[in-house]
Amino acid sequence: MLELRLVQGSLLKKVLESVKDLVTDANFDCSATGFSLQAMDSSHVALVALLLRSEGFEHYRCDRNLSMGMNLNNMSKMLKCAGNDDIITIKADDGSDTVTFMFESPTQDKIADFEMKLMDIDSEHLGIPEAEYHAIVRMPSAEFARICKDLSSIGDTVVISVTKEGVKFSTRGDIGTANIVCRQNTSVDKPEESTIIEMNEPVSLTFALRYMNSFTKATPLANSVTISLSSELPVVVEYKIAEMGYIRFYLAPKIED
């Protein structure tokens, strides 16, 4: 038996909107730790890892570990029927091939339940090691989204370079080139508007902008985004989900042929 009650149902709606274009089908894993997902895009170039910790739910009952295969487009269709202020409860019985999403309006005057068919998904679970990164950049998520969108109108790839001068986002295309440098800025009153660069050593990596733009669909989940770079690892683009956990996108770099 599984019953997860999320008062801030809009979080789940936002999570779905941020992953459904990247991943078609995925297993949601439910354990005592929380509600999680790990899935790669169909090209195996990007990976998404989501964790919503059990403590973040108003009610969290998960009698035994359960993996539920869902088509994310269908799940999104169902969650779009929930109001932004609705409380969402996810329910499933052991051995059932369906999951139920229950939506309650804040005033309890409307209660809806949507039952969705589950599917068997054969997916490998990857081991992601704890790692030291050469550089970690924290910046406003809206700023990062703007940069990715702007650069994708010029080129297909972005070179992200971190030096002690700051973080530089560069692209080139048929019409020309573009460089955007963001310097460390901690003087602003609001911490979420600051840009903080931790650099152990300079790093420069090239990524497909199409994937970066897809990751920025998670912007509504967090004011800040953290970009962790190392020359030996995929970049990690992380959006913290307030009080609950995170959504992390991993993207393998492009390298010189």
Partner: peptide, 14 residues
């Protein structure tokens, strides 16, 4: 030209 690496080039299966 650039070669796109894959996630599996970095992370192994659990």
């Amino acid at each position: 030209s650039c070669l796109q690496r894959k996630i599996l080039d970095y992370f192994g299966e659990n």
